[in-house]
Amino acid sequence: MANITTLSDAIATHVRDGQTLALEGFTHLIPNAAAHEIIRQGRKHLTLVRMTPDVTYDQLIGAGCADKLIFSWGGNPGVGSLHRFRDAVERDYPHHLEIEEHSHAGMATRYVAGASGLPFGMLRGYVGTDLLKYTPNISTVTCPFTGEELAAVPALTPDVGIIHAQQADRHGNVGLWGIQGVQKEAVMASKASIVTVEEIVDELDSRVTVTLPSWVISSVAVVPRGAHPSYAHGYYERDNDFYIGWDSISKDRDSFDAWIDRHIHQTSDYAEHLRLVDQEEGVLA
């Protein structure tokens, strides 16, 4: 059964220095509050897994939490570069970041293999690409029935999988709807899992399309708007202005550090950060 607790307790209980973490959410339901809490608690030497490291991972990387990134597309969607990610890869700032780079299809296959308890997954992919030269854990397997050669990639089995969802019930059963990404796979592939939710309800909404039973989840924490600046379908929209504003905040090392300090280290929780964003100075604060 999932333990229903606070986000700070869930992160303190499950997340350790040096672990492999997967924070998933494909544009929708990105667990940004959880990422802030990881930074606030000062976790280091993490291997971060995520198909689309966007603003969330830009913050974790820029704050020096990550030693390694496993990913398939690292950008600020519709805006441009992730400047902290680029500074790490291009100039080893704040320190060297090892990267392990796949395609989306490959990453999805790796999560499915992990969730399925298989050592690897296979796909028609990667043929002829330079990813084969630079990513050592892409291999091939021959179909025993047809002889066709297919790409093989190892299962992803993170120490902790972290997602955001719309709802949990009082038993900790989690329900989400809208774009579902690889959230279910990330939870099922991981050894422990944390789910932040918009609210706890008596009964999950009839719109729920993905249900994760309480007993496959380690901890559930209520964090209203915990996906912001991403969105939670049926609750709030994507804050596109924040993503656009992030470009200038993150371009400069000092303005990034000041932002992290003000919005994470000097706040006690995500609600306080959201109040800063909403009331005082807007997204650029």
Partner: peptide, 17 residues
């Protein structure tokens, strides 16, 4: 040691295939 680190593959390799 890239001059410019671009976002990466995303879905493109398998779409192209």
């Amino acid at each position: 040691h890239p001059k410019v680190r671009l976002p990466g593959a995303g879905g493109a390799p398998e779409i192209a295939g």
